[in-house]
Nucleic acid binder design. Structure first.
Length: 804
DNA sequence: AGCACGCCGACT
DNA sequence: GTCGGCGTGCTC
């Protein structure tokens, strides 16, 4: 019988990044399990904090002080199983973050505690307290001015007021009202005889109860109301008379309810290539091998069908499957496809769900009611047991890496879980990341190349237009004559077009034509972006917003002009050039509202528009049969960025967007406008030549010493004072350098490209290495020693996706 | 994170 | 003298 528990507390600092010992209250001694959430007193004031039980024991721990006792138990069943607890521990070490942060990212956000700090009077009010409390019994610290807090702390020392911490579990199970008939048919008939004839509703109720008297399961009230117009009020009457009992029935918020009952789709006939792929994957599953497959296949080569049939095989063995999709690729089309095949066995997790919906999907998985999980990055932590297969579609996508604590890559987590479960992993992409492709080269992963398209359609023709020439002929900077001509043709034939504006490394800003002054963010080292929809200037880093200036702040000139290109500007240009075209715009501004993304896609799918104009987000995962033209307005804006992955990103984007053209029986055409037609990323994308790009890019990465030839770690120090941040990063460099072998390379320290964000200055250094046994230890130690003190913040990012 | 302890300057 | 500034260390 366990009397003591080891608990990880919700205090995200490195000094508390270890289990603390607590006594288990007597009533819980034989029930408290590892993985359960609790509330414990912690620290000097014994404030209440949430914690996770990570161990129990019946021998007193080796702790000299006096043990505190667990205050509350929040769960009846563990919310983290032994696998996920072990994963949290590993992930914290791997990403140099805290175990508690890892545990919290694994769970739906509703299960993270919220805290309130309240003040109350201890006895009779004094003049001083009366002024502050103003008749209220208690006050919330969050609503109080710093001045008032100061006074209250003074009063606390005189024991006139007390401070109280409260933990709130936000996880709420949704219930609906239901009724349970209590009597037999004969008894209901007898009861009806006593009810006055004019009490019509009561007779209706008795008739209903009588008809359902033999039902044992509770009857859902919303359903009864829909059928009979009997409401909760009538049920209360019935309950008072002892006819029925009202119960709360646990239910799920299911955003895809209508899909669960949709007719199932049947597996498609596989091509020889697809069949071999499925065969290899399922064999690895059968043999319980944690083998990693890299499926490299162009758009339309039928990767999704390979995924679905491999999942099918895993389910047939009684196992579960996890399918990861980039956030942006988790379109209603994809969900429909998976739900269509596996119906109610599928749970979906993505950021578009409300917190409640996400919590409910999570509970369905946790209870084993869903065997297939489809979801974005954090779905990699789905509490599936007996996992038989993990799929990661579009494995090169940058959204798989989380950019705040814990800075994990879903691929690393997927590989860890596969090793734990001895199950295969399938990484799929038309343009694999160089990291994965080179591992396949070395035989670490098994490469499966799909060379033909499942529909035997040729890949679309890609035409590259040199905008340098174009600019000499016309004054339009966004549309070449070829693109306009082709758009026109599509309008005549009633076919659809997709236009992509590459926004990476690009923004609209406001500049004074007289003095060249550019309006910048007061908090960050970056120019403000013009937003015509809100008529304001916004900072994309900290969210600062201000009015569009009429007069130059520097020279008072009125000659202020807009520069740069946004989707809004392109849209208005297009309206002038092609007045008859119906245009749908899709970008961060038009898709901010929940469901807006899906709505725009649905409208376009229903032919409510001729042209879909958007940013990167239109490049991925969409499948519209009547799109025969794809135009890329500016292919190369990202190439100018000082980022070693710029070429890779450009190649991936162009390849992906090209795949949007001509997917059904119609031939597709792609027009790419660029100022760098000779650049290899654009040249090779034009020929759909991933392998050629891979060879070329690997040579360059080798010469420059970049991943995948080196591992990289980015260390950043920030402070409100620029020289404090700089001082710290140099100190860290001196600490790291002696531990490194001569083979390792240290880049920097340098100020970050955008050196100031949110009133803080950032300095960074990059460590490039192949094999450094000491490095892990030194970096962990650096994190230990440099807790957020003196306003310095340190962050360590393993394998950052970008150095800028 | 939040709290106590402890050491310094400037105030009733 | 003491109030309160913040640098340092600890929380089972």
């Amino acid at each position: 019988m366990a009397q003591f528990a080891q608990i990880i507390v919700d205090v995200p600092t490195l000094q508390t990044n270890r289990p603390y010992d607590y006594a288990i209250p007597l009533v819980w001694q034989d029930q408290l399990q590892v993985g359960i959430r609790v509330v414990v007193p912690f620290g000097k004031g014994s404030r209440q904090v949430q914690g996770f039980v990570v161990g129990t024991s019946d021998t007193p721990p080796d702790y000299a002080g006096e043990l505190k006792t667990i205050a509350q138990v929040l769960d009846l069943q563990p919310v983290l199983n032994t696998e996920l607890l072990a994963l949290a521990k590993w992930l914290a070490q791997w990403t140099f973050s805290f175990q508690i942060s890892c545990m919290q990212t694994m769970l739906p956000s509703m299960m993270k505690a919220s805290y309130t700090k309240k003040v109350r009077l201890t006895g009779a009010a004094t003049p001083a307290t009366a002024a502050i409390f103003n008749g209220q019994a208690e006050l919330d610290f969050a609503d109080l001015a710093p001045e008032t807090i100061k006074q209250l702390l003074k009063l606390q020392r005189q024991n006139l007021v007390e401070v109280d911490y409260q933990v709130h579990d936000r996880a709420k199970i949704k219930t609906i009202k239901a009724i349970q008939p209590l009597l037999s048919v004969a008894e209901y008939t007898a009861a009806a005889a006593k009810v006055p004839a004019n009490a019509k509703r009561q007779h209706d109720l008795l008739a209903y109860l009588s008809a359902h008297a033999t039902t044992t399961a509770p009857l859902s009230l919303p359903q009864i109301t829909a059928e009979t117009q009997l409401t909760l009020a009538h049920m209360h009457t019935g309950a008072d008379k002892g006819w029925l009992r009202i119960v709360d029935l646990e239910t799920y918020r299911d955003p895809y309810a209508e899909l669960a009952t949709a007719p199932r789709t049947q597996p498609l006939t596989l091509t020889a290539e697809q069949a071999t792929a499925v065969e290899q994957i399922t064999t690895a599953g059968q043999q319980q091998q944690a083998k990693v497959f890299l499926v490299e296949g162009v758009t339309g080569s039928g990767k999704t069908e390979i995924y679905l049939q491999s999942i099918q095989a895993a389910i047939a063995k009684g196992q579960t499957a996890l399918m990861l999709v980039p956030e942006i690729g988790l379109t209603p089309q994809m969900v429909t496809r998976v739900k269509g095949r596996f119906g109610a066995h599928v749970a979906v997790l993505h950021s578009g769900l409300s917190n409640g919906e996400r919590y409910d999907e999570w509970r369905r998985i946790e209870r084993g009611e869903a065997q297939v999980v489809v979801g974005a990055r954090s779905a990699v932590f789905a509490p599936l047991t007996n996992l038989g297969l993990i799929i990661m579609d579009e494995e090169h996508e940058s959204s798989y890496k989380q950019d705040d604590m814990p800075r994990y890559h879903a691929r690393d987590v997927a590989l860890w879980r596969a090793r734990y479960h001895h199950c295969p992993v399938v990484l799929g992409s038309a343009t694999p990341s160089l990291e994965s492709r080179s591992r396949a080269q070395k035989g670490v992963y098994q490469l499966i190349r799909l060379k033909e398209r499942a529909n035997h359609q040729p890949l679309p023709e890609v035409t590259v237009v040199d905008m340098k020439d174009e600019l000499k002929q016309t004054k339009e900077d966004n549309f070449s004559s070829l693109l306009l001509q082709e758009l026109h043709k599509r309008l005549l034939h009633q076919e659809q077009s997709v236009l992509m504006l590459n926004r990476r490394g690009f923004s609209s800003f406001v500049m004074c034509r007289d003095c060249g002054f550019v309006l910048k963010c007061p908090n960050c080292d970056i120019s403000l972006t013009l937003h015509m929809d809100t008529h304001s200037m916004k900072c994309h880093y900290c969210g600062h917003e201000e009015a569009i200036p009429q007069v130059c702040a520097n020279c008072q000139s009125r000659k202020i002009r807009y520069y740069g290109t946004g989707t809004q500007k392109v849209e208005s240009e297009l309206k002038v050039l092609l007045p008859e075209a119906r245009i749908l715009r899709m970008d961060v501004d038009t898709t901010r509202r929940k469901g807006a993304h899906a709505k725009i896609l649905r409208q376009f799918g229903n032919h409510q528009a001729d042209i879909l104009l958007g940013t990167q987000m239109i490049a991925k995962g969409l499948d519209f049969p009547d799109v025969t033209l794809v135009g890329v307005l500016n292919a190369d804006t990202a190439l100018g960025l000082p980022d070693f992955r710029a070429s890779e990103r450009t190649f991936q984007l162009l390849t992906q967007v090209s795949g949007r053209a001509g997917r059904a029986d119609k031939k597709g055409e792609v027009i790419v406008q660029t100022y760098n037609p000779e650049h290899y990323a654009i040249r090779l994308a034009r020929h759909h030549d991933y392998e050629g790009f891979y060879q070329r890019e690997m040579t360059l990465r080798h010469q420059a010493g970049y991943p995948p030839y080196y591992y990289t770690i980015l260390v950043t120090a920030s402070h409100e004072e620029e020289n404090e941040a700089a001082k710290k990063i140099f100190q860290l460099m001196n600490q790291v350098k002696p531990a490194l072998s001569p083979q390792a390379v240290l880049l920097g320290p340098t100020p970050r490209a955008i050196a100031r964000v949110n009133k803080r200055y950032y300095y960074q250094m990059v460590i490039k290495y192949k094999h450094e046994p000491q490095l892990e230890k030194i970096l962990t130690q650096i994190m230990q020693e440099n807790q957020a003190r003196n306003g310095i913040q340190i962050s360590i990012d393993r394998e950052p996706l970008s150095f800028i």
